[in-house]
Design a protein around this nucleic acid. Sequence first.
DNA 1: AACAACATGATAGTATTACTATTGTTCTAT
DNA 2: ATAGAACAATAGTAATACTATCATGTTGTT
Lengths: 223, 223
Amino acid sequence: MLSNLSFPVHAGSYLKDPTESELGKRILHESIQMIDDLGLEHFTFKKLAKQIGSTEASVYRYFENKYKLLVYLANWYWSWLQAKILKETYNQSSKFFKLERTIELLASPIEQDEKFDFIDEKKLYHIIISQGAKVYLIKEVDEENSQGAFLAYKSLCAIVSELILNINPNYKHSHTLASTIVETCHNQIFFSEHLPRLTDLSKDDYDELKEYITHLTASALRA
Amino acid sequence: MLSNLSFPVHAGSYLKDPTESELGKRILHESIQMIDDLGLEHFTFKKLAKQIGSTEASVYRYFENKYKLLVYLANWYWSWLQAKILKETYNQSSKFFKLERTIELLASPIEQDEKFDFIDEKKLYHIIISQGAKVYLIKEVDEENSQGAFLAYKSLCAIVSELILNINPNYKHSHTLASTIVETCHNQIFFSEHLPRLTDLSKDDYDELKEYITHLTASALRA
DNA sequence: AACAACATGATAGTATTACTATTGTTCTAT
DNA sequence: ATAGAACAATAGTAATACTATCATGTTGTT
């Protein structure tokens, strides 16, 4: 299927491609529900296996452990978002619009993509916000990184960095600002939901978040 | 001791005050070393007990589990930093200097504070950077929050927010910007060490980080 | 000096987690 | 008709995350 081929999710995170079997797709679908429900710590392959009516051993044939599964899901999300950003900005002539639209896509909940019925993009977005940092906040980060676990994230940041440089070619911190934008979107959504005293944003007020990030970015590039 | 009393680390995170016994202080001291070495996932109370020549059961008398211990350490750090910020900016008349110095303190590794010989502040800072987000990226975040687990962090953000409002009383996102500043300092230090393609900053170039954050903040408040 | 209170150590035990290994069945491709 | 893959079923191990009990030494009190 072409729709699968369009997502070269990095091979290192899985033992067996989960998109190529029914069981694999069920693993992806149910793990998204369960990680969102339980959080990564309380999520186990045993619980997942029970949920999908399979066995622990079968799940282990697809993923080494739950962290690798999270890495897979994060890569899926970053790749998917990158494709969406490229598609929606490709034909635009205004460099300002391009960056603004990109920020909007980063800072908004995502609608279901009918092409991938085994991925609940909205829940996946929620997982990335609430668990995403655990992908790299690990002891093995350097090893994972050298195996390509974060390529999709880095690629996305590179794109945002390019958009920044298009607007201000002299700006010295395009990568820094790019990752600041991405991380801040997630942090602030999390804070608005759980730690409201760390933000002025109201829960689910994505317009306000977009305005904040856009203003922060624009003023940094103008000054 | 007065030096202990000056740190009302929130009571909810411990079962028994670790600063009031030799064993408690050894727990704090060695857990900082070990969490920094092993990461939170590979760190266990059993390993800690062995390291300090005690038993698992004894450690459990001080902390419910390793997450609570991390909450304690994070609170210690935020409280300590807040005290330092207040001390260093109290007598300053320039509101710009106050914010700049605060950013500098957030964005620099910390020297050992001789008052607390059982806390290695430099390693603790490293832990906050590499593990700090795990304090709140948990399923139980709302419960922990209502028990006061993040008071010190919120208090610090409130202080930064005040400094922001002193400079521009019309700025609508003072809390949002405050938490953005704090989180970005940590993220970018982590990225510069482990994921350099997500940043333009060089490892250990704290001056450059300070400049980036200061510029970002100043331009947001000016525009 | 006697005694209570308390902190810690020593030991044991349980449930869950994170796997690995083996064997048998079904379905499919040749 | 058969080899091979995919999966289910089952079992088992080591580590983790605790909890419980009891003994011992130390400290403070009368």
